[in-house]
Each structure stands twice: as structure tokens, then as C-alpha cells.
């Protein structure tokens, strides 16, 4: 096994060294650039902008447990940090969790987290490839244009219901 690994390492090393090209200009995941008319909500010191959810078809849901992500931009005008601690969307999915995505070199690692910080005077973006609300075990399909009532709960500011629109994210 060690021997095989050594061969692979050598092969890949040779490959890497032989790979001559302009370095690909890796761009960050498509940022949720909220449109000028993106819906915005105020909850205490928090402003929540452009909540949206990635679509999954009814056929996918019927083919077995399937997940999707929810995203938005949250800014905090207050002098204290606040934390997103819960998200709920009725019976949309079996479970809703808060997740983060970390790139470790070129490996992506998804992890469940307890809360998402919105720093004092700062902005936190939930976006594809980063922090997200994860709807696990969808109970029904989500088609572009659908509106989902999403309840978001913050440690300091309390709970607000927002309309999250189902849409496909922009390409980079």
C-alpha cells in the first residue's frame, strides 16, 4: 500500500510539475448580489435581505431523501453581535440545520454549526459554497418562483418570518 502511494505521489507530483498553464482565476462562489428591488426585512438592529432557496424537483423528492440550501444577507447595525440560532419552514423538510462550508485546500468540508454570528456593525452572507440554512429531507419539491415562509430566530433580536423565493443561483 505504501509503495502504491509512493507511486501515486510521484505520478501526481510529475503531473503537477508538468502542468504548465496560466493559473485558473478561481473566482469565489456566485455572490448573492441582492437586486435593487430585493425584499428586505428589519428586525431590531438587523436587516435581512434577499432570502432565497435552491430549487429541487418533486421527482427528486420522491426518489428519496434530498436536501437543499437557503441563503440571505444579514447586516447588524447594532453595537452588539447577534447570532442566527434557528431556522424553520413549517413542514417543508424533516429537519432544518445551520451549516458551514470550509475549503481545506481543494477539499470541501460541510459541517453543522450551532449558530451563525452577525458581528456588531457587520454583515454576514449566507451563500452557495459558504454558510447556509440546510433543509434536510424535503417533503415536497421546490420550483423556481415558489415562495416559502421561513422563520429565522436570532439570539438577541428574536424571530421574524420572511418570504424566501425559490430560484436558481446565478452562474459565475
Amino acid at each position: 500500500m505504501l509503495r502504491i502511494q509512493a507511486i501515486i505521489i510521484t505520478l501526481l507530483a510529475a503531473l503537477a510539475l508538468a502542468a504548465c498553464a496560466e493559473a485558473p482565476t478561481t473566482a469565489p462562489a456566485p455572490a448573492a448580489e441582492p437586486a435593487a428591488d430585493a425584499p428586505s426585512y428589519t428586525l431590531g438592529d438587523l436587516t435581512l435581505t434577499d432570502p432565497w432557496i435552491r430549487p429541487r424537483s418533486q421527482a427528486e423528492v420522491e426518489a428519496g431523501p434530498i436536501n437543499t440550501g437557503g441563503y440571505l444577507l444579514i447586516s447588524n447595525q447594532g453595537s452588539e453581535p447577534d447570532f442566527l440560532i434557528d431556522a424553520a419552514a413549517g413542514d417543508l423538510s424533516e429537519v432544518v440545520e445551520l451549516h458551514t462550508m470550509v475549503m481545506d485546500g481543494d477539499v470541501m468540508r460541510m459541517d453543522q454549526i450551532e449558530r451563525i454570528e452577525i458581528p456588531a456593525g457587520g454583515t454576514t452572507e449566507l451563500r452557495p459554497g459558504g454558510l447556509h440554512v440546510m433543509f434536510i429531507g424535503l417533503n415536497r419539491g421546490l420550483e423556481p418562483g415558489d415562495i416559502i415562509k421561513l422563520n429565522l430566530t436570532f439570539e438577541r433580536s428574536g424571530t421574524i418570518e420572511v418570504d424566501a423565493v425559490v430560484r436558481t443561483p446565478p452562474q459565475n
Binding site: 501526481l12 507530483a13 503537477a16 510539475l17 502542468a19 498553464a21 496560466e22 493559473a23
Partner: peptide, 23 residues
Amino acid sequence: ILTILLVVGLSACSGPPELKGTV
């Protein structure tokens, strides 16, 4: 190791100008 070598490989050379990915 692979990642490091890839990064080294990418920064060490410039390839055919018409291709933008890693050749």
C-alpha cells in the same frame, strides 16, 4: 502534497497562451 505540488506547478510555468485551465 498533491495540492502543494499543484500550486508549485501552476506558479512555476506559463503554458500555451490559448488554454486557461491547468494543462
